[in-house]
Amino acid sequence: MVQSNKIENNLTMMKKLLIFSVVMFVFGYAMVPFYEKFCEVAGINNLLQPDKLVKKMEIDTDRWVTVELDANTRGLPWDFKPLQRSIKFHPGEPVEVMYEITNHSDREITGQAIPSYSPRFLDKHLRKFECFCFTRQVLKPKETKVMPVQFVIEPSLPEYLHTLTISYTFFELPVGAKAVSEK
C-alpha cells in the first residue's frame, strides 16, 4: 500500500517536472520577442524603425560634419551604390541622400538592407525619418531603383567627431522569410 502510494507520488512529481521543462523550453523561445521588445523600448539596436520627426531641432551652424556613405551587397547579384560619396552639413540640419540599386540577374530578388555605423555609438545621435532599410526591397530582373535616406545628426554629437560613416549591406531574403522591419 505504502509502495503504490510512493510510485504515484513519484509519477506526480515527474509530471510536474516535465511540465516545468516544457515551460522552460517555451521560455527560451519567449526570450526572442521579449528581447526584441526590450531593445525597442530601451532604444537599443533600433536600426530598422523610423525615428520620430522633430520639428524644431537646433542647427549648430558653428561646426560641420562629414558623413561618408558606403554600400555593400552580400551574396546577391545587385549593384548597390550611393549617388554621392559623402555629404557635409551642420549638426541638426535634415539631409537627404540617394542610393541606387540594380538587379543584374534574370530573377526577381528580395533584399533587406542592414545599416552599420561608425563610430558604433552613432545611432545615439542619428535620427532617420526615411530609409529603404525600413522595408524589404523587391527588384524585378534588370530593374533599377533610386531610393532616399533622410536623416539628421543631432547637435548632441561629441565635438571631436568630424567624419562619420553610414554603411548599408543588402542581404538576400529567402523566399517566404519575413523581413525584420515587418515583424
Binding site: N45, I114, F171, A177
Partner: peptide, 18 residues
C-alpha cells in the same frame, strides 16, 4: 529558413549569446 540569429534575415546574433 528561420532567421532567429541570421542577420541577413533580420535576426540578431547577440540574441543567441543572451
Amino acid at each position: 529558413g528561420t532567421s532567429f540569429f541570421n542577420a541577413a534575415g533580420g535576426g540578431d546574433p547577440v540574441l543567441f549569446q543572451h
